[in-house]
């Protein structure tokens, strides 16, 4: 006990810095977890969660028995995987590319320019895409037609809608995502590059053999953390982009919940699906971490 107190006293300022984050997690992440019990209840607007009627696994059964269960889970995983891997790839490439800039002003300008799309609202982003890929007046289809090709109905096509979703996500997120890799690259010991230059490495080889291995732990950590969010996919962008013609490839868990649960006040159902997502996320996280530790000896826990 005395030892603990001594440690607290020693690290009090570090603890003070961590306190807001700790409180945030406690208030917004830990305390609301008590609401998980709603997944096993018939939620009532009038009653407290301690007074609601217990319904057991009713909501889970309802979700699993839906004919669209497999489809929405598959679409969620596929869309997330595509966004995750392509997003990370482009973020890393962008960070490596920006790191090679010698002109600092140009580098900062490029950084700012690539961060900017992150701040564009998803509604605006989809609005821009709708205009760009429109079959009637969109610049893309106009160009296709001018080159002698046939116009493509991008937003009503199950073939094209996913690439559109992923590409726009990469466009809006790659710059922002590269920040963490830029930070990791900055921390690489400059003497390593000097030694490599003496050994005759050109810039590409330095990138390949020094920069990339140095940021590998960060890449793996980010990858594992993102795999832990594989079942989460915000409904907003999909709701804005999909329609009945593209349900096959774009209907995801969150839009399914929105249509069949939230808008109807069925919070028990929505919570059950949320809980299911979280359990799968934890399983994915643990699995990814295990595989990573076995193969690269890097893990988040």
């Amino acid at each position: 006990m005395r030892n603990f107190r001594a440690k607290v006293k020693r690290d009090r300022y570090v603890g003070l810095i961590a306190l807001p984050g700790f409180l945030y997690l406690l208030i917004f992440n830990c305390v609301p977890m008590a609401g998980i019990i709603v997944a096993f209840q018939n939620f009532s607007f009038r009653k407290s969660i301690f007074q609601n009627k217990w319904v057991g696994l009713k909501w889970f059964t309802k979700f699993f028995h839906s004919i669209y269960f497999t489809r929405v889970v598959r679409n969620t995983l596929v869309l997330n995987a595509l966004v995750l891997f392509s997003g990370m790839l482009f973020s890393i490439l962008l960070a490596l590319f920006l790191n090679e800039f010698k002109n600092q002003r140009l580098k900062k300008f490029c950084q700012s320019a690539t961060y900017f799309p992150h701040f564009v609202s998803v509604v605006v982003l989809v609005g821009i895409m709708t205009r760009m890929f429109d079959t009637t007046t969109g610049v893309v289809n106009t160009a296709i037609a001018a080159l002698g090709g046939s116009k493509v109905d991008f937003f009503n096509s199950n073939v094209w809608i996913r690439p559109l979703y992923v590409a726009s996500s990469v466009w809006s997120g790659a710059g922002w995502g590269s920040i963490i890799y830029m930070g990791a690259i900055t921390a690489v010991d400059p003497t390593l590059y000097e030694a490599a230059m003496i050994d005759g490495c050109d810039r590409f080889k330095q990138m390949l053999h020094i920069t990339l291995p140095s940021v590998k732990p960060v890449i793996i950590t980010v990858l594992i953390m993102n795999i832990g969010k594989m079942m989460n996919l915000g409904a907003t962008k999909v709701l804005l982009m999909y329609n009945a013609a593209t349900y096959e490839t774009m209907d995801v868990i969150s839009t399914f919940v929105y249509r069949t649960g939230i808008t109807q006040g069925e919070y028990g159902y929505a919570t059950a699906i949320g809980l299911f997502n979280s359990v799968v996320n934890i399983l994915l996280l643990v699995t990814a971490n295990y595989i990573s530790k076995k193969t690269t000896e890097v893990g988040v826990f």
Binding site: Y68, N243, A244, R259, Q264
Partner: peptide, 22 residues
């Protein structure tokens, strides 16, 4: 709700796919 939500999705989707020729 337990029956019609899925039926509605299926019908909306199917009619659209028939019209589009998919």
């Amino acid at each position: 709700n337990s029956l019609y939500m899925d039926i509605k999705t299926y019908v909306q989707e199917s009619l659209t796919r028939f019209i589009m020729g998919e």
